[in-house]
């Protein structure tokens, strides 16, 4: 990785670019003051309009996924969460993964490597519900969607959150 050639690469946290400075100044959150972008701009010594412009650019490139709130979903009653894992035909996993990811209640959906023989599953879909029965109903819909393309699946429920810290880079 040399040279900052794209906006997203510009934002690399070790960097000295304006985008990197904006990331560092906002990764703990946006100031709760009437002009939050002005507060960020004053902290890093640039114009408010420039902060807004660069954040808009980072939003467009995907370096910023969204600007908003992250709720504690346990506090909102979403207490059942199951990591459903599926052994899906390699030739169909991308097509089917996109369809599983689009289902209601599926919040994350990824393809990951199998680790044979212990772990035959290559599709991970996180399913949330207010009860375990809701999660099970969602899993049944995924079973129906995947049909014969899934050879096996399991649902791993979380029983305890042992650590949860935001991702921070200095």
């Amino acid at each position: 990785m040399s040279g900052a050639t794209t906006p997203s690469r510009d934002a690399r946290l070790g960097g000295t670019s304006l985008d990197a400075a904006i990331v560092r100044a906002t990764q703990a959150g946006l100031p709760r003051v009437p002009r939050p972008y002005l507060a960020v701009a004053e902290r890093i010594g640039v114009a408010e309009s420039l902060v807004i412009e660069r954040m808009r650019a980072m939003l467009e490139t995907g370096a910023i996924r969204r600007i908003g709130a992250v709720p504690n979903h346990y506090r909102l009653g979403w207490v059942a969460n199951g990591m459903s894992v599926w052994d899906v035909d390699d030739g169909r996993v991308d097509e089917l993964g996109a369809r599983v990811g689009a289902l209601d209640g599926v919040t994350h959906c990824y393809r990951r490597p199998r680790r044979l023989p212990a772990w035959p599953y290559n599709l991970f879909a996180m399913v949330h519900g207010r009860t375990r029965a809701e999660v099970e109903a969602q899993v049944a819909r995924i079973v129906a969607l995947l049909g014969g393309a899934a050879r096996a699946h399991e649902v791993l429920y979380s029983t305890r959150v042992l650590k949860k810290t935001g991702l921070r880079f200095s």
Partner: peptide, 18 residues
């Protein structure tokens, strides 16, 4: 009160070099 864990831009950390 912990209802929100964070408020602000959510970065794609992999693009940030992580």
């Amino acid at each position: 009160d912990g209802t929100l864990t964070r408020f602000g831009p959510l970065f794609d950390a992999e693009r940030m070099g992580g």
